[in-house]
Design a binder for these strands. Structure first.
Lengths: 215, 215
DNA sequence: GTTTTCATGTAACCCGTTACATGATTCA
DNA sequence: TGAATCATGTAACGGGTTACATGAAAAC
């Protein structure tokens, strides 16, 4: 129901898409996936998982319940609960991934969406990349003008901070530009000459997506 | 009392240090100062200002109260409240700026501190820069190792996201390195041969702090 | 004269964390 | 045997936003 941390929800659905996991492990994966920026605590994760079960996106099953069996040393730890996606969950995942509704390209959602681009169609990828780009550009413009209005009465440090911030965002725009043109190229030349439809599975987004790996 | 948004508090104190301002204007300045990352709403700013008045860090006075005077067109708008620093406020500012207690170098505090470096002593500047640097380095290390553990089962997009995040942080570390060595240089060679003590006023942090202005 | 911008304020809400409680398992 | 790690969960709190209420001045 409603507006619970879409970023987290999408991350959970995406990670559980391949294989079932239990909360503890899931949290580590989520945090290393999102990494820079978001990091969720158990206090957020567990209630979210329960809520998602209630909504039928997830189902829980305890795989090797060591509690009842008197066997001394078994692989499975305590009653750790493995969560797996239900069909509704898969649907939900696809929806969230595609649904570019209000904004999938704001700071806290873009990362997750990008991480699962491999499972989105080329169209969605493009829309999100473009959306993100123009969002940043916009931010850049209004900031540049604000800067030029006040540049004079700023001391060296404040100015340097501004300069650095600007540069970072400019860099990110460039990154997006590269990604966008790489996507464009893979649309023009769909699959290096090999059609292999394969029922819409991995579109294999070129080798490494492109990007100067000079460093 | 206690733990109210230190970032905002410091920003307010710093901006009001030069000249009194009213809330509306102050908010714009704060947000453009912090820019990338933080942006506060009125719902945060006004209560904070009131709280700071209660704590005697700020004093409010309505400069040209047009309410009573029947004069038709005057410069000052409605009862806009200008806030100015009290002596306690100045003290508080100095404290917050120097006080490298728990962590002035985490993501949400570093920016504000840096913005007011011009008003901090060389020692404080150095401590914060170093602190920030090692904080980022730490983050970098643990992320790199997490990456190498899981690199294989990551698809191209996820990997690219990781790569980009890593690069951004590496870049920031480099930036800090440059700043640190610039600070170091200005300690070795204090002031181009002119002593001019001047009772501890503006230490004039070299011309432009250093930094390749090639762009 | 109406719309936009300036200007101040507050209450309800939201997302997420901290701190705590609990307990099994592995390692030294 | 005791410490560290794995594992799950919850209640209290906190920082901040949204949305609303209000109104004056400037711009069109």
């Amino acid at each position: 129901m409603g507006k619970r941390a879409e970023a987290l929800e999408l991350a959970i659905l995406g990670l559980l898409h391949d294989a079932p996991l239990h909360g503890y492990e899931l949290r580590k994966r989520v945090n290393s996936l999102l990494g820079w920026g978001r990091a969720f605590s158990y206090g957020t994760l567990y209630p979210t998982l329960k809520a998602m079960v209630r909504q039928n996106y997830l189902a829980e099953d305890e795989p090797v319940d060591t509690l009842v069996t008197p066997a001394p040393h078994r692989s499975g730890r305590r009653g750790r609960i493995a969560y797996r996606l239900t069909p509704e969950g898969k649907e939900r995942f696809a929806d969230l991934l595609t649904h570019t509704g209000p904004s999938a390209w704001d700071d806290e959602h873009f990362g997750v969406h990008f991480a699962f681009f491999g499972r989105a169609d080329a169209d969605t990828r493009m829309r999100i990349l473009i959306g993100r780009r123009s969002r940043l550009q916009e931010k850049l413009d209004q900031f540049r003008s604000a800067l030029s209005r006040t540049r004079e009465r700023l001391d060296a440090y404040t100015l340097e901070l501004q300069r650095h911030g600007l540069e970072s965002v400019e860099r990110e725009v460039k990154w997006l530009d590269d990604l966008i043109s790489a996507e464009q190229r893979s649309i023009d030349r769909p699959q290096g000459a090999t059609p292999t439809p394969g029922a819409g599975e991995p579109p294999a987004p070129s080798t490494g997506i492109e990007g100067e790996n000079g460093r």
